[in-house]
């Protein structure tokens, strides 16, 4: 009876999943599926009252059909889930990459220079708590491109945790380690790359991990606003179609992709972490 804890946990997880799915399935009356309504019923608005939450079996069936052909494009409002996901991921990576490009060097500067820290701190403190979506109208007006505006919103929301953690990590590098660099006559650049960067890496990666999580949260909302493409738009579009089965499937997909992004940074974090 001494099963490893991991195995016990896995069995318990599966059991919980099974119980949850069964309860869900049992709670949903079959005949009220929105997908089974006729065109006429929908037009008459009957779907709005009668459409219920689909059972997991329907979601599963939908998942199979959607995943069997994820990359089709049949007009602007009919694209495979893979295509929509690719749009979202591309936007997140673009905005996030730009943010990293600015946040990491700037964070280094702030962390190493008390002057830069004091000068930039008020800006950071004011800009950081702004909801990224509040930037949307301004972005749309200035950039005049919905695609680029979505990327901008990702940029602005993912820059802060990276910037702050980088500055914090760099400023917190132990004096002893900097003294090691000094007694070995390392130049500024070599000190930055061989001592400060590895020492601050765990903190920096933590910031990057928080950022990617926020970016993935925000992209769904941003795409609902700007429309056109992306998994957020897909959810909104299917909701307007009253296709709750697709909405639920899309929600699951969003969760899984978010988990994958987080797992990636979790792995990087483990790779750069060290114990003293």
């Amino acid at each position: 009876m001494t099963m490893p804890l991991r195995l016990q946990a896995a069995i318990l997880s599966l059991a919980l999943l099974a119980v949850g799915l069964l309860a869900w399935e049992a709670a949903v009356p079959r005949q009220t599926l929105a997908t089974e309504l006729t065109e006429l019923e929908l037009l008459m608005g009957m779907g709005a009252q009668r459409a219920g939450v689909p059972p997991p079996s329907a979601v599963f069936e939908r998942a199979v059909t959607m995943l069997s052909d994820p990359f089709y494009v049949r007009g602007p409002n009919d694209k495979g889930i893979g295509v929509q996901l690719a749009y979202s991921i591309w936007r997140v990576l673009a905005g996030y990459g730009l943010a990293a490009l600015i946040a990491l060097p700037l964070g280094f500067l702030i962390g190493m220079s008390p002057l830069a820290y004091r000068a930039l701190d008020p800006f950071i403190q004011v800009l950081r708590p702004i909801s990224p979506l509040a930037w949307m109208p301004l972005a749309l007006f200035i950039i005049r491109d919905s695609q680029a505006s979505a990327i901008f919103v990702i940029f602005i929301c993912s820059i802060w945790p990276m910037l702050i953690n980088t500055a914090f990590g760099v400023a917190g590098v132990r004096k002893d380690w900097l003294n090691v660099a000094r007694t070995h006559e390392l130049g500024a650049l070599r000190t930055a790359f061989t001592v400060i960067l590895p020492a601050a890496a765990p903190t920096i990666i933590t910031g990057m991990r928080i950022s990617i999580g926020i970016a993935w949260l925000v992209i769904v909302a941003a795409e609902m606003l700007v429309g056109g493409t992306g998994i957020g738009y897909f959810v909104w579009n299917e909701w307007n179609n009253l296709d709750l089965t697709s909405v639920i499937f899309a929600i699951l997909v969003i969760g899984v992709v978010g988990m994958a992004l987080d797992a990636f940074f979790g792995a990087v974090q483990r790779a750069v972490s060290f114990s003293e």
């Binding site: 002893d176 003294n179 750069v272």
Partner: peptide, 11 residues
Amino acid sequence: VVFQNYSLLPW
């Protein structure tokens, strides 16, 4: 210099 707390780079 050999520091009191060794000051090895832990990574």
